[in-house]
Amino acid sequence: MAADIQASQSEIVHPLDHLIRTDRIPHIWCPGCGIGTVFSACLKAMISSRIDLEKTCMVSGIGCTGRAAGYLNLDSFHTTHGRAIPFATGLKLANPELNVIVFSGDGDLFAIGGNHFIHGARRNVDMTVICVNNFIYGMTGGQVGATTPVKAKTTTTPVGNPDAPFNLPLLAWASGANYVARWTMLHIRKLTACIEKALTRKGFSFIEVLAPCPTNYGRKNKENSLETLRLYRDKTIIKNNVDPSELDMDFEKGIILGEFVSRERPTCIENYDRTCRIP
């Protein structure tokens, strides 16, 4: 009987397994971490969007979220800290047939890589950028970042963060992104639908996804993973097309989620072809 159960279990294949380098599992993410949920939403969207997966590649920077590329069973690039977007820019411009997804964390994309983000959005390079925002540097053990809420405790702000965090959708909108959305990893269906939309849209698409880091952010700020999820449920408001300046990260007044920007600026390649290539 035990042998039968073992045999039948070995035949069970997760519907996303073909997109995972299963020989690299177990992954590095901690119990209660939200990255895996965002990653599987991304994989589901890649399938449902019907994009050509052989022509799809994922680029990550450094950090916990940056490890995602290494688990994807497609062409995947784990680059240097903060540099995923310029690397992805080279990939896309040199081969416009590729679908390029940048999957990385808030510290990677917005602190060390902030300059590359705004320029990628300004050029409107045709790529989908997914930022898992856990408010903290997870891999290095919980330091303050460009997205850490005011007064939050981290190992480098032991009495509380004195600085204000970025409003990421506002930054993306102001920089020129064609598509901007924000969800939490609790809003898995809406998140998956938005990633699917982003993958099939032209231009620079940006999706911010809030996700818990119980090991570092939660422990320092007396907030366990379940409490974080309750915050995501109770302290968020879904409001599409709201003015991006209202999207501050403030749990007191409530975090606004939804789709905020959906426009059709020409892409980097379209502009280059039109302006620089003489017919």
């Binding site: 680029v59 690039f77 680059t79 240097t80 540099r83 977007i85 310029p86 690397f87 992805a88 820019t89 080279g90 990939l91 896309k92 411009l93 040199a94 081969n95 590729l98 300059n115 590359h116 320029h119 280059y272 620089c276």
Partner: peptide, 22 residues
């Protein structure tokens, strides 16, 4: 394709991406 990047860090990153694009 020519692209002027935002700094030399990005310039170097972009040529690596392009190289992997073939």
């Amino acid at each position: 394709t020519f692209i002027q990047m935002e700094d030399e860090i990005a310039a170097m990153a972009s040529i690596l991406g392009a190289s992997w694009a073939g």
